[in-house]
Design a protein around this nucleic acid. Sequence first.
DNA 1: TAAACGTGGGA
DNA 2: TTCCCAAGTTT
Length: 384
Amino acid sequence: MLAEKNIQQTVPQYKQSSYQIVEFPSFADRLVQWQLAHGRHSLPWQGTRDPYVIWISEVMLQQTQVNTVIPYFERFMATFPNVAALAAASVEAVLALWSGLGYYSRGRNLHRTACILQTQYDGKFPKDAASLQQLPGIGRSTAAAIAVFAVGERVAILDGNVKRILARYFGIGTYPSEKKTEQHLWELAEDLLPSTQDHQVLTAYTQGLMDLGALVCTRAQPHCQRCPLQVDCKAYRDNLTATLPAAKPKKILPTKEVAHLILLNQGHVLLTKRPTSGIWGGLWCFPEVTVDQNGIDYCAENLCLQVERQTELAPLNHTFTHFKLTIYPQILRLISHQSSWKKSDRENNYLWVGIEEALTCAIPAPVRKLLLAVQPVLRTFMHE
DNA sequence: TAAACGTGGGA
DNA sequence: TTCCCAAGTTT
């Protein structure tokens, strides 16, 4: 068995009998055995030690749930099967596949890192977590995950799953992302690592933390009956699983309002590329103006385009992590015989595209929603 | 260091 | 509806 040679950490209260020494399996041993029997083994990025595959999956999984990631991962691997293919692509092509997944700096950093690997590392990945962590978009926990799964390095991860498991197991009542608590959790995570260097054990252990967090030690209504750590879990003992880990301090989200101008002409829609910094960095969006700006005037003054008809659409609410946005969309149908209408082009960060093609571009989720809402309207126009 | 950075699902 | 937050990193 994989873990039997690794029974070293013990739970003191179980070996205090002077009549017989009962070695109770360590935290790590119980987790490893549980993972092998009950964990996930068939996710699309499992069963390989290819660091490229592991890297892409780990980055996609940052702050994103498995079921959301799977289709994105499949598309991404089919299009960019290796570092060379990713490095050879444009950032825009990468962001197009990232469209809808959120946190777009992840996509930009993925491309940056692929280029760095290609030009400075002979297209290969460094073999240790410390080196991996120097690459854009790879922090301490992601670097550790890649190093464990790819080469079996003995390093600790600390993601949301691990924070929740440890907060409950040790009965830690302070907010896990508060600096001092997080430092403590990193130390615990390192202390709990299996003492072996065995690749398969370290993989099962690391995967076991994620699987336990996702399947058993869930945020709401954890399944403690099925937990291999239940016997010495402080939160379970003290009936605190509902209150640990401590909730994030609440903040009231500010609300912003903007108008989005959906310019239509001859079956095409106008998109403009947002600056790299800020929300939706590097993505194609509708021209955005303040709610008190007149869309028709904006078109005339800034784009030299004459509007034939203006139609307001229902407001669209979109919530980010740090603010709420209400989008007031308006369709602006151009007078169709303007010689200059298609002059806006990629070099100016403007792009006229057919609506089907627009849906394949690097666009954020609300723009996709609006494009889908506008599709039938556009067909009506085409038939007039 | 606190804040920026997306989106969708579950309760 | 509203709130919480998920395989975090960067600035």
